[in-house]
Design a protein around this nucleic acid. Structure first.
Lengths: 341, 341
DNA sequence: GTTAGCACTCTTACAAAAAGAGTGCTAACG
DNA sequence: CGTTAGCACTCTTTTTGTAAGAGTGCTAAC
């Protein structure tokens, strides 16, 4: 679809006014911008309505953008606004977390992004899909308690407390290390499934009983390291602006709480930065929401996403660069954190 | 304050009807319970109003309980209802988490309790106030990376990844273990403060530069182990029943998000189980909310709390036993989890 | 002490009217 | 032919008024 310059100006004015005020935009209110009469603008608006870019809540109201209207605005009209230095500084301060795990970094980032944008924010922890087992350590911390530490090829470190029903003698631990060495080191995380474990256990003979809890804990760790977690922040912002979400505010919040579907949605997005407007996505809980997500990269690989969920009349022009900038920073921070030796 | 049996019956009826329906309760609707006329009930109600236990939204409406009315009901009238076996089973199923850290157990418990009660739920992780350092391990996982593990006398295990600017040679690690052995083992966690660290570093001479990051990471771990975290669940229930909270729903949610004040409030409560009704607590964000909390004990010591936050017209009679039962279960589970050899 | 009866108050629902906003259309203009 | 002024029209919002309903407080009788 190609619009005349004037139509584009009018569409942009309607979108921006509506985002700012939340009220339908009438023809008079944008006369000043175009230096033509309101009647002319009305004619143009009528055509924009026919094209499906604007709509009227009722016959005698001003226009508001349709999802397609927002889409055209985002794709073609929105000025690629540069971030204010002050905003940059705020973001930099917000994500500078010292000495923390990726989970903590991303949780903080979500909280901060939510505060910054007054939206709900999500992030996913780095996926461990293609990682392999690099190293496993067992540290006894009591006669029957110890800690298993798993280090992956991607630099993730996961640990879990291990409690045994038997005393953890040196020989038991040695056996465990043997199994680790011969079987697990170098193994892709997603190969550590039930079938593998079963054949492994079968091959252990009399040691099986004692080793089963070890290997199953190890497999839980591998699952942990593979699974991406969802970090959610700023749910209170949904309540705060609940009128912008129509009646679906509770459904939206419940949807975010479930985590799994939003995670799937984030992982499906392909572009560097992704804007989903209203019903464009397949989830009806998001029909009044827009989602802005960006991928972060670790050592150049896409590994997770950070994004915000807001009402469709969100300030795309200024929030898209913010999300992008923050995401880049977090990517750098994670790269640094996971950098191995 | 002492009420006549009939007044008590009327008060209880008003409270229970109002909790059930959310509508002001008129004199006619409780005639059946008392077998006296509505006029008599009106007289009694007028006196209950004079005593400050009931109030009217407006002159020609039924009565609703004041906070004091709820208080009298909770303290004197509420039947100590026994939990349904089916509810007990649900709770048991809900908190049976296998092989998880205290944090995970409590996070799950909060989520579950929120689902069960349709309120927001909070829990605090076990306090480490009186704990001492029992053991410290350092596990190298790379030439410049390792993991420091802290085990406290209360059975908590905390670990943190440690990244150094120098290679972690055997002699460096040995020096670290020496410092741990001579200084930290047995030390109360809350003694590990800036002053202690400073005198320690001063005594280290030429090793100081290399050891500072170690001891400061260790001190962060100690802080972690002491600090109680807030696990929050079911915020969506606030939005779901936001009308019950009046206009303060957003304030409430934001208040819960902050965490710190609610944590203080939980730690201040003294009784085994604690019910705070409306403005009884000093936080104006809670003026339309009631809070039911119970302490859990680990090996008999009070170590943290679990609770729910709901509207003042919450079903005290059935939710108080639920909170208590779940809290006891979680206490047992934590005792088991933290039991040391 | 209890109760029936009744006037009174206040909310809620509904309807009708008035005000306001903004449109769509038509006809005139450059 | 694009642009514009003018105006009738539509729909929402606000206001006003009325009626119905709920529940009370009070009084007088039992």
């Amino acid at each position: 679809m190609e619009l005349s310059p004037r139509k584009e100006k009018i569409l942009a004015a309607v979108v921006e006014n509506y985002i700012r005020t939340g009220e339908p935009v009438g023809s008079k209110s944008i006369m000043a911008l175009l230096s033509v009469s309101s009647a002319t603008i009305r004619n143009e608006m009528a055509e924009l309505s026919a094209l499906g870019l604007l709509e009227q809540p009722h016959t005698s109201a001003g226009r508001i953008p349709t999802n397609e209207g927002y889409r055209y605005y985002v794709d073609n009209l929105m000025g690629v606004r540069h971030l204010d230095e002050s905003v940059k500084h705020r973001i930099e301060a917000g994500v500078s977390v010292k000495n923390a795990s990726p989970e903590t970094i991303l949780a903080k980032a979500s909280e901060f992004l939510a505060d910054l944008t007054e939206c709900a924010a999500v992030s996913t922890t780095p996926s461990g899909e293609n990682a392999t087992v690099k190293r496993v350590e067992f540290v006894p911390v009591g006669t029957r308690t110890g800690m298993i530490i798993l280090l992956t090829s991607t630099g993730m470190i996961k640990s879990k407390v291990y409690r045994s029903d038997y005393d953890l003698t040196a020989s038991v631990i040695e056996k465990f290390y043997n199994i680790v060495k011969t079987t697990f080191i170098g193994m892709p995380l997603d190969d550590i499934d039930m079938a593998t474990l079963q054949t492994l256990v079968a091959s252990m003979g009399s040691d099986a009983l004692m080793m089963i809890p070890f290997v199953s804990t190890l497999s839980e760790l591998a699952q942990d390291a593979m699974k991406t977690m969802i970090m959610l922040g700023g749910q209170s912002n949904i309540l705060r602006y609940s009128s912008d979400y129509g009646s679906t505010a509770y459904e939206l919040m419940d949807f975010l709480r479930r985590g799994e579907p939003i995670s799937r949605m984030l992982s499906e997005s392909k572009d560097d930065i992704d804007v989903t407007i209203g019903g464009e996505n397949k989830f009806k809980q998001l029909e009044n929401s827009s989602v802005i997500t960006a991928h972060y990269t670790i050592d150049g690989d896409k590994r997770g996403s950070i994004g915000i969920i807001g009402p469709t009349r969100i300030d795309y022009a200024s929030l898209i660069p913010s999300v992008r900038y923050l995401t880049d920073l977090v990517g750098n921070l994670l790269t640094q954190t996971l950098k191995e030796d």
